[in-house]
Design a protein around this nucleic acid. Structure first.
Length: 240
DNA sequence: TCGATCTTTCCTGGTT
DNA sequence: TAACCAGGAAAGATCG
């Protein structure tokens, strides 16, 4: 069963439940789970057993406070909490006794960089959302390496305070960006992929492959690229 | 196991 | 001359 609409999962995540955090461009904090978390129902837990994912740390006022964990298989209940848009991660919810309750339940969660600030959140009933998503290769052994190159670029651009010396927006609204330091850019990608032999020549070739798929578009100017129609998540949150 | 996808690597030739 | 761009070809890695 696959939930097309990303839910907010009302769990009580605390220090020790996650091994790293990320902050979105709008300041939303996310927690990357390091171990399965049991729900208040003993037969269900959220796990990172075969996939990695982030959970948004929702401000209390937006957190759907409930005394019981929602029924994982009840899409109606999930629809009530479907307030995020923009999906990247896949989450598998396991039942502790598969023979008793069936296969894992897969669902999708919002991108770490595509979350809207709480006051910008809009409810959506668009169940087709997930169809726009590319396949997400998630493997715990490849944590941190499964990201696609264009997603890596997008994430760098969405953290301008840390990465403006490497990548910089040329035209934020149009999705045009420029590589400031090509060597540093290639080394950063190489370190991400554990590939010491990466250089800008190779990296740029990979970028040019994106022209065919529509993830990038050609623009004039050296070291300048533009996100294409197939790229998502780079837009400013308030324009959604 | 196999096909699809996404790089990675190497290459030639052209431009800035 | 160095850095970059364009794109073909093939191989590697990973996934479903």
């Amino acid at each position: 069963m696959y939930f097309q609409q990303p839910p907010v999962i009302p769990i009580h995540c605390k220090l020790g439940d996650y091994d790293s955090t990320a902050t979105t461009s709008n300041g939303t904090e996310l927690a990357m789970l390091s171990k399965p978390i049991m729900s208040e129902r003993s037969d269900i837990f959220l796990g990172s057993r075969d996939t990695e994912f982030f959970l948004p740390i929702i401000p209390t006022t937006f957190h759907p406070i409930e005394t019981d964990f929602p029924e994982m298989r009840d899409s109606h209940l999930y629809a009530e909490h479907s307030i995020f848009k923009g999906l990247l991660a896949t989450v598998t919810t396991y039942h502790s006794n598969p023979e008793q309750v069936g296969p894992p339940v897969k669902q999708v969660l919002p991108s770490i960089d595509f979350l809207m600030s709480p006051n910008k959140i809009k409810c959506s009933t668009d169940v087709k959302q997930h169809e726009k998503l590319p396949k997400c290769r998630t493997n715990p052994q490849r944590r941190g390496q499964s990201i696609h190159l264009w997603e890596f670029i997008r994430d760098l651009l969405l953290n301008p305070t840390e990465n403006s010396e490497i990548l910089r927006w040329e035209n934020r609204r149009a999705g045009i960006f420029r590589v400031v330091k090509s060597n540093a850019f290639a080394q950063l990608w190489g370190s991400k992929k554990n590939n010491k032999g990466m250089n800008y020549e190779k990296l740029s070739r990979a970028l040019r492959h994106y022209y065919k798929t529509g993830i990038l578009e050609r623009v004039d100017g050296r070291l300048t690229y533009k996100f294409g129609q197939k790229a998502y998540g780079w837009e400013e949150a308030w324009s959604l």
